[in-house]
């Protein structure tokens, strides 16, 4: 049989990966096995995705596919290619992606450089901090009506992306 990774060479080894207690086996040629052993993240991602896809099929064949509303990429497509369709896919598949990213990268929170914050955004963040402390003060005074009003105002100011995160 041919290698399940490259589809070109003869498969010579059977590799077993265990992800979250679920094991999956793949027939590989020696060249592709080397990639896995070298700790290639892309190869690791492929192994995790195929394991998870297998698990999904076993447990619930009726699971509807998730579709990114912006570019139309489905989660099944991502499982096949390891490539996302657009930035919005990260939001659309957030729940499914989170364990995959944590497993591949070993961490789940970005550290390091960030895009510069615009003056507008800075003003928004300052205003939100103000509202938050006012809301906490209102709760402390048991002025729940005011606290609820402030909460709604805060919600309205939160961009959709952050709200989901």
């Amino acid at each position: 049989m041919l290698c399940e990774e490259c589809g070109k060479n003869q498969a010579e080894v059977l590799m077993t990966t265990v992800v979250n207690g679920q094991s999956a086996t793949r027939h590989l040629c020696r060249e592709c096995l080397k990639k896995y052993q070298a700790g290639d993240l892309q190869a690791l991602l492929a192994a995790i995705l195929s394991t998870m896809a297998g698990k999904l099929q076993e447990t619930d064949e009726e699971t509807p596919d998730i579709i990114c509303p912006k570019c139309g990429e489905t989660y099944a497509e991502f499982q096949k290619t390891g490539m996302l369709g657009c930035a919005e896919c990260y939001q659309a598949f957030r729940k499914e992606l989170a364990p995959v990213i944590t497993r591949v990268q070993g961490r789940s929170q970005h550290a390091g450089r960030r895009p510069p914050v615009s003056e507008e955004e800075q003003a928004r963040q300052t205003k939100m901090e103000e509202l938050r402390s006012l809301m906490e003060a209102a709760v402390a005074e048991e002025n729940f009506e005011e606290a609820a009003r402030l909460r709604d105002e805060l919600r309205a100011m939160t961009p959709a992306r952050e709200a989901k995160a």
């Binding site: 993240l41 892309q42 690791l44 991602l45 390891g82 490539m83 996302l84 930035a87 990260y90 992606l97 995959v100 990213i101 591949v104 990268q105 789940s108 929170q109 970005h110 550290a111 390091g112 450089r113 960030r114 895009p115 510069p116 992306r161 952050e162 995160a165």
Partner: peptide, 30 residues
């Protein structure tokens, strides 16, 4: 990177950093 970000917006997520086509490059993208 700085010169571009002064004028243009890159895909960025507070949790996952700079977003890339393959999640194996996300974060710093470095």
């Amino acid at each position: 990177d700085d010169a571009l970000q002064e004028q243009l917006s890159f895909a960025f997520d507070p949790q996952w950093g700079y977003l890339t086509a393959c999640p194996t490059n996300a974060g710093t993208g470095l």
